[in-house]
Amino acid sequence: MTAVEIQTPGAKAVRREFWSQLLRSKTFIVGMAILAFWVLCVVFPDLVATHDPTAQDPLAKWVRPFNDGHLFGTDRFGRDVFSRAIYGAREILIVAPAATVLGTGLGVILGLTMGYLGGIVDDVVSRLIEALISLPVILVALLALTSLSAGRLTIIGVIGFLFAPLVARTVRAAVLEERNLEYVRAAELRSENAFYVMFIEILPNVFGPIIVEFTVRLGYAVFTMAGLAFIGFGSQPGSPDWGRTIFDERISLLSDVWWPSLVPALALASLVVAINLVADALEGVIDR
């Protein structure tokens, strides 16, 4: 028996083509640039921030933007709004990616199993997923956080678990398209076990949709966690976390003091939009 060599472009060439297409996409570059800025703020906040985010100054309450060395003014305690927005990135940019990694991991395992094994497991789990999806993620998360202690690990766990079925649905659909292809049949004829076929043969071939799903979910994770922080779950009072700050400072809005709430709101918007720009660019390149 001689193995038939199929002439395909090498993995390296494919990867190079992938990156060159991505780097030519303006959406991707803009999204990544914004993301890189926020990651920098998480790792080295004091490089960007101009003040101590917790330092209060009762004499400098509600300083307007661009005054007295405060780029975006100060809040009702005289804290520097710009520096708080920079430090506020940390909480969400640690928790949201962690939850998304967990959710994607669980979802990939679940989706591969459902798609490849099919049958009754698939039917039952599909029904369960449908029931779960008719509930908004943020509400189930709230329900769980109320019964558990609302620490950082709990939030990561809860959001991760809730994202798993959503990821599983996408992975399942991708696996269904692959499972009757020749390379899967070939592996089965070699009597490889189901585990090998799922994780070694199929998984690398559904990697594209998984990456796109991961990025999209990351956007939703930020969205959901900001919402939870806004109603008081997942951050300590007084922390510079964006959702929390917007909730705390929204009353000043009525006195036409817009900067303490609008600045973190725009910071949050820029992060979510950036993640979605990257997701869009990835989807465009991977689909082709």
């Binding site: 956007g219 969205f223 806004f230 959702g243 917007i246 929204r250 817009w258 709101a265 949050l268 939009v273």
Partner: peptide, 12 residues
């Protein structure tokens, strides 16, 4: 993709 309260703040 923008969270509700960002839009809410601007509208208020």
């Amino acid at each position: 993709v923008t969270p509700e309260f960002v839009v809410g703040i601007v509208l208020i």
